[in-house]
């Protein structure tokens, strides 16, 4: 048995290196000024070159107003927050209904709510662009947020449904027995208990939106830049190990990294976390 644990550790370590290590050369590249073939390390670093170039390079370029990183970052954040809030708001009643009720056609409803994940985005995207042009919301924030709802909503419904399924309906019934209205029972009892799950759904929705490329590319028509569309252009025109592209890759990866750390902190049974907060509230 001991030997199998050892080899498991080896397999996992190799995998961690394979998937984590590729980021390292980009960290190095992002601080480089010159990294010619066939050097294994940059020939000149960013801090050596400062002041010798007519315009800023590398990180200095990315953080200067001419790069457009600021607006792209703000657009990604705004669209991501709006999309995840809207998706959770729309998904919440559906998830609650799916978790609590059995009804005819339920399987069909569940299937329909998942289909957007499987149907090619290009098929939805092209039709959506024409529809949005007609509605006058192509190339607007509204248009992009609505477009991002399509890949986000299925996941929000899915996550929230499982959150409600794990929640014992007894608590709600007790609140109702004690005289709370349906709305009160939901707001004061159910909602605080599903809060960790809701936060997970919001984070996940944000992450999906922040990573979408094709739908943004189609609907924005190049007028609104987000981090992924900006990265696309840099990869298309940049050389391998180019400092600016490398820096941008690290910035584009940041939301995912934050998500991973936060979700690791949040893991554990969301309902259990909800209950402990309730107990703490009661103690105060």
């Amino acid at each position: 048995m001991k030997r199998s644990v050892l080899s498991s550790r080896m397999v996992l370590t190799i995998a961690a290196l394979l998937f984590g290590l590729p980021f390292l050369p980009l960290v190095v590249a992002s601080f480089s000024f010159r990294w010619h073939w066939p050097d294994l390390l940059p020939g000149a670093w960013l801090w050596d070159a400062r002041g010798t170039t007519p315009f800023p390079v590398g990180w200095d370029y990315l953080f200067s107003p001419i790069s457009g990183l600021g607006p792209a970052f703000l657009n990604t954040m705004t669209i991501g927050v709006a999309t995840s809030l809207l998706a959770a708001f729309i998904a919440l009643p559906a998830a609650y209904t799916l978790a609590r009720h059995r009804f005819r056609g339920k399987e069909a409803v569940e299937f329909f709510l998942l289909v957007p994940v499987i149907v090619p985005q290009i098929a939805v995207g092209i039709g959506m662009l024409l529809l949005f042009i007609r509605l006058g919301i192509a190339r607007t924030y509204t248009g992009i947020v609505l477009a991002h709802l399509v890949p986000t909503l299925p996941y929000s419904v899915r996550i929230l449904t499982s959150v409600f399924q794990n929640l014992d309906p007894d608590y709600e019934e007790q609140a109702r027995t004690l005289g709370a209205s349906r709305m009160q029972a939901f707001r004061r009892v159910v909602l605080p208990m599903v809060l960790p799950g809701l936060v997970t759904a919001l984070l996940f929705g944000f992450l999906i939106s922040a990573n979408v490329f094709l739908l943004t590319f189609l609907i924005s028509g190049g007028r609104l830049e987000t981090l992924p569309t900006m990265l696309f252009q840099f990869i298309e025109s940049g050389a391998p190990l180019d400092a600016t592209t490398a820096g941008l890759v690290l910035i584009v990866s940041a939301p995912g990294l934050v998500f991973l750390v936060l979700s690791d902190l949040l893991t554990g049974d969301p309902v259990a976390i909800g209950r402990t907060t309730l107990v703490q509230d009661a103690k105060q």
Partner: peptide, 17 residues
């Protein structure tokens, strides 16, 4: 953690790598 890292970044990051 490192194995899950690629999961949360856009495909374009993979392309750049």
């Amino acid at each position: 953690f490192f194995v899950r890292l690629p999961l949360v970044v856009p495909y374009l990051v993979g392309a750049a790598l």
